[in-house]
Design a protein around this nucleic acid. Structure first.
Lengths: 331, 331
DNA sequence: CTGAAAGCGCTTACAG
DNA sequence: CTGAAAGCGCTTACAG
């Protein structure tokens, strides 16, 4: 392990000058800078991360907290974040705070307090009050994606998205439209809640009756819930607004199993533009979670550079992609 | 920010004693230990991670390097690792080294060298020679899961797993069995290669002709490849050994679309026991990636505690789960 | 069992 | 533009 002292000696300068040359901070003559850089390269100098952190107060790492990495949205966001971070030369500390786990409590009680990061990106964590307090107590820049409780949240307008999805079905002539998603185990995430509200308001405005079937946030959950509600011919809707593409695709698979044609007998619309959306011809409101992750990094870096300058967040837009899972109702 | 000096002062001891009491290292009287602990709690003492690292040489973080977090296997492994790490009080530094990205090169060239971790877990990275060298140059404990190139890899026996899958179909009376997976874009991962070998050897032994269709490692890829190869009646196999459940499920969906009954007209067997396996009644060889992640952490911690004691790795076992995607061939 | 002192490897005012 | 010195906040021999 060669240290900065070795570099300095080799370049014939002091450690201070070597440090300034290497970090690009403070005045150094071009000639000296070059000599130091050459020396650093020739000894294979890699600064000690802990020494840099201790002396400078900066960790060069960003913390990411999310409730699991298993869902499509979270995995995509995480990759988007990671990609931008690698580009910026920053490390990523992952905190997987799945709801209801002991690990989540430990993260909020112990891990965050260690402050092994300069800033934090919170994704879809729907924090409880005490969790939010823990985060603010860090007194570090925080950027949130699709999370309740934070200002300037990076997220598509979930109310509007559900409104557009519902209007799409109404525009096709549907009246009996059901909202599938949310309320699983009595819990609603912020995202689920907002999407349901958008659906409900649109149905109200159209003079149609809102109807809800609860459902977990996964493809098998959508499958199970849809299999259930579609099996009764009398109560079967002609259209489903699904809280997400995973749920929508589960519903499509269930419908096919029951011999219910999509879109002939049943229209299904989702939100996301999931990796599988195309192969299921799913009409959906596309969002780009990877880009949201990249945006979060960008905003965080600006806040890190200047904590006082308010960085305005441009809200990501959802885009309607009409495929072949929606059509006018039969008859 | 209260430091250890504050704790020491409050407890009426020296910093050295406070440190020993807090870290549990070296002799301290029980009474002193208690007083220090109380003092630490009362001031809300949290040790500075960088100071601890610099002084002790330990980072209390584990690096995890994997080619993306998007696949089922990787996401599950990652959650298994994270859970165990949280339990052990260790941080997780994630390095997402997707094949062919600039990020991957930066990880191997720059990020790893910073050594911001005490040990590394490599998951499914199929390292090139120079990448492997970079890792060994770190001179830190490394544990690998489902990766080529490392000794003591934690993985199910992929050759054997494919053998068992193939024998399952042969035992049901199938002769025309195709292997779906691997070779996408000319690339074979170690896992794909091994599974194909197990399939091939079993077919050879049974005097049947091995047949391969290349396919990427995802559900839509399995769907597309299967849609292709199943559409020609004359060449259609009666059984498919899929490289993974995602590919197998894609194939099942494709078969259904084409009106090919599973398992009546086509048997499909996978490997994994994916989250969706049950809803597709998929016969598969189950593995538990979450447990593999936990095992990797366990092994790594032992190696960290005593780098010389060779820690034997108990290979995870795959378990055949017969569901309803496989049956005797029709006719 | 405890404390004084050195040291981990950098960065950062400060003086020149 | 450069260097000497202090300091970041701990841990760890070492002496007692």
């Amino acid at each position: 392990m060669k240290g900065i002292a070795d570099v300095a000696r080799l370049a014939g300068v002091s450690k201070s000058t070597a440090s300034r040359a290497l970090t690009g901070t403070g005045y150094v003559s071009d000639e000296t800078r070059l000599r130091v850089a050459t020396a650093a390269r020739s000894v294979g100098y890699v600064p000690s991360a802990s020494a840099v952190s201790l002396a400078s107060g900066r960790t060069s790492t960003v913390g990411v907290i999310m409730p699991g990495v298993t869902g499509w949205f979270f995995a995509e966001v995480l990759e988007g974040i990671q990609e931008s971070l690698l580009e910026a030369g920053l490390d990523l500390a992952l905190y997987d705070a799945r709801v209801g786990t002991r690990g989540r409590d430990r993260i909020f009680d112990d891990f965050l307090a260690r402050q092994r990061f300069d800033g934090l990106i919170a994704v879809g964590i729907d924090p409880e009050d005490r969790e939010l307090e823990r985060i603010y107590a860090l007194n570090r820049p925080v950027v949130s994606i699709a999370s309740g409780g934070f200002p300037d949240d990076i997220a598509i307008d979930d109310v509007d998205v559900a409104r557009r999805a519902t209007e799409h079905l109404i525009g096709l002539g549907h009246h009996h439209i059901l909202f599938l998603g949310g309320g699983d185990g009595g819990r609603w995430s912020h995202v689920e809640r907002h999407r349901f509200e958008g659906y409900q308001a649109t149905m109200d405005a159209a003079g149609a009756r809102a109807e809800h079937a609860q459902c977990g946030e996964s493809l098998p959950a959508g499958y199970a819930a849809a299999a259930d509600l579609l099996s009764d011919l009398r109560t079967r809707p002609t259209g489903i607004v699904a809280v997400s593409d995973e749920v929508a695709i589960g519903a499509i698979i269930a419908a096919r199993r029951l011999g219910i044609g999509v879109p002939h007998d049943l229209s299904v619309i989702g939100v996301d533009d999931h990796e599988y959306a195309e192969m299921f011809s799913l009409t959906t409101l596309a969002q780009d979670p990877r880009a949201q992750g990249a945006l979060a990094v960008e905003v965080l870096l600006e806040r890190l550079a200047d904590p006082d300058a308010p960085v305005p967040v441009v809200a990501p837009q959802a885009r309607l992609i009409v495929r072949n899972s929606t059509a006018a109702p039969a008859g």
